[in-house]
Nucleic acid binder design. Structure first.
Lengths: 154, 154
DNA sequence: CCCATTAATATGAAAATTCATATAAAGCGG
DNA sequence: CCGCTTTATATGAATTTTCATATTAATGGG
C-alpha cells in the first residue's frame, strides 16, 4: 500500500495552512470511496448528482449544480450523459419554462440507493478511525463552517 | 453578494455526509483566496506548487505532485508552463538522472512570498469567523486526520 | 557486465472542464 | 401589450486533465 505523503505539519507553511489541510483531507478521505464509485461505473460528479437527487428528486439544474459543487454548464453536460445512460430524465418545469427539473429513473434511484448505502458504511469506517472526541465534533464543526460560508453575505 | 447554498444539514443524506461536508467546506473556504490568486495571474495548481516550493525548494516532480494534490503528469505540464513564465526552473538531480528537481526563480520566489503572506492574512480572517473553540481545534483535528490517511497503511 | 525489473518523468490522444456567450422564458415598469 | 432586464439552461471553442504508455535512468541478481 503506498499512500501519498503529506507535508510535515511542524515545518513550513503548507503543512499547517488551513485551506491546504481542508483540501488534502477532503481529497484523501474521499479517494477510497471515489475509487469504489468509479468501479461501479460512476464518476465523482455523477455520484454527487445521484446523491443530491436521492435526497430530493426533481431539482432544477442551477440548484443541483450548487449542491453538487460544480459549475452549471458542467452539470448540464453531466446530466446529458446521465440521461443518455438512463439514470435521470429532464422535465420542463410547468410553472416556469426556463427551468429544467432533473428526476431519477428507476435505474438511477436503485444505483443511488446502493451507493448511498455504501457511502454510509464507508463513512462509519472513516469515523471509527478518529478519536471519540474528534468523531463527535467533526461534522457539527464542518456544518457550522459551511453555514457561515454559504448563504448570508456579511 | 450571492453565495451558493448548501443542502439542509437536518434533512437528507448529503447535508450530513462527512465527505460532502469536507469537499464543500474546502471548496467554499478556498473560493475567495483562489479568486485572489487568479487575479494575480496564478491558477490554483500553480499556487499550490509555489507554496510547496516556497516551503522547500528543489522538490522532485513526484513528491511535488503529492504535496500539491495532483497527478504527476499534470504537475509535469504545470511545471512546464511555470518554467515558460519564468517562475521555476528544472534541474536534473546529480545523484539520480531520472529525477527532475524544481526550483523557484527570483521572480517565482517573490510571487510565492507575496501570495503566502496574502494566504496567511486570509486564513486569519477565516479563523476569526469561527468560535474560539472551533478555531483552536480545527487545524489539529485536520492534521490528525491527514496523518491517519497518509503514510501508514493499516 | 548484462538482463530484467523498478522508478521517475514525459507525452499522445481522448475526455472533461471552463469561459464566454447564445437562446429562450419570465418579470416588470409604463 | 411592449420593450427592457433578469433568470435559467445550453453550447462552441479553447484549455485542462486524465489515462495509458513511452522513454530514460537506476538497481539488483547472476
Amino acid at each position: 500500500m503506498d499512500r501519498p505523503q503529506a507535508p510535515d505539519p511542524e515545518a513550513g507553511f503548507v503543512g499547517s495552512y488551513l485551506l491546504y489541510l481542508l483540501a488534502a483531507v477532503s481529497e484523501r478521505a474521499s479517494a477510497e470511496f471515489h475509487a469504489h464509485a468509479r468501479n461501479q461505473g460512476v464518476r465523482v460528479p455523477e455520484w454527487r448528482v445521484l446523491a443530491c437527487l436521492y435526497d430530493g428528486d426533481g431539482a432544477m439544474i442551477t440548484r443541483l449544480a450548487e449542491f453538487a459543487l460544480m459549475e452549471q454548464s458542467r452539470l448540464t453536460r453531466i446530466v446529458d450523459q446521465m440521461a443518455a445512460r438512463g439514470l435521470v430524465t429532464r422535465r420542463a418545469d410547468p410553472r416556469d419554462g426556463r427551468r429544467v427539473r432533473v428526476h431519477l429513473t428507476e435505474a438511477g434511484r436503485a444505483l443511488a440507493a446502493r451507493l448511498t448505502a455504501d457511502a454510509r458504511a464507508h463513512e462509519a469506517r472513516l469515523l471509527a478511525r478518529l478519536t471519540e472526541d474528534d468523531a463527535a465534533r467533526i461534522k457539527p464543526m464542518l456544518q457550522g463552517m459551511l453555514a457561515g460560508l454559504s448563504g448570508e453575505a456579511e
